[in-house]
Design a protein around this nucleic acid. Structure first.
Lengths: 146, 146
DNA sequence: TATTGTTATACTCTATAACTATA
DNA sequence: TATAGTTATAGAGTATAACAATA
């Protein structure tokens, strides 16, 4: 019977878990979860409806509703009703939220550097290309928030 | 500000998550969680105390106690008191448990093949070597059960 | 006294599904 | 009617910490 550690997936999960945990430790200090940060990061590039964010994160509308309420209560985002008293809402980062995203972007850059910075550029590029290709083959469903 | 997907860690987490989810889907059908299977797989190679298993899996003794009770109730493992009426117990796979591990080992082989089988042997070896090295640098704490 | 295992409790995260409000 | 968002509920999984038993 094959050993667990004879699989590529085993080592991939080891490193991915260590990477996630390292990020989580950083984020915990600031009272933000990984999921919350990814949501904020998505909203940095473009305002989004709650349902669109749910789609991006691979979560249910209910889960995102709760997430959005927490982020709004922390003054990270606003939930603005569309014009005309519509119930549909647009999620937008506040200035505070945008600042937080920038801070965490630096933390992410540093974490990536710590884990993978020692690799030759060619090697890095090769690995990213391979992983990208696997994601493409299998179809990316959502940003990995878990 | 850098994009999420400019990081190696991002793509690593994408693929690792897809891999974990693919495994979970297979395991769900059989009523076993990923954590349970990894526990069983650890016990296949050697009997272990509950506390040693907790150490291996990076879980608390309480969590493993619950896990062991479930596995024992499913007749996958036995919790044998050591000789002399000691309270310390040894966790051992039953014949059923050993059979289950062998079935899932095949499923894992197949999943790894599906995800990474298309890579050239050299490429596979390179990736494993790099990941292994990163784990070594950072110190492997536990088998990735989450 | 230190270690091992169990238990009770609580917490976090999420899904499900029923519900409300809108188009 | 279909869609968007909310809420209540429940379940999984785990940590914490108090506890019991043992060495």
């Amino acid at each position: 019977m094959s050993r667990l550690d004879s699989h590529v997936g085993y080592w991939l999960r080891c490193v991915a878990n260590q990477f996630s945990h390292a990020l989580n430790r950083e984020l915990e200090d600031k009272g933000v979860t990984l999921t919350e940060w990814i949501a904020l990061r998505e909203l940095y590039d473009t305002d989004m409806r709650s349902s669109a964010l749910a789609e991006r994160l691979g979560m249910t509308r209910g889960a995102v509703s709760k997430l959005a309420r927490k982020l709004a209560s922390n003054l990270m985002i606003t939930q603005q009703a569309s014009a005309g008293g519509s119930r549909a809402q647009m999620l937008s980062l506040t200035d505070d939220g945008r600042a937080v995203v920038r801070v965490f972007a630096v933390i992410l850059d540093q974490a990536d550097q710590e884990f993978f910075g020692h690799l030759e550029p060619d090697t890095r590029a090769l690995i990213v290309a391979i992983l990208r290709d696997i994601v493409r083959r299998r179809g990316l469903r959502a940003v990995p928030a878990d």
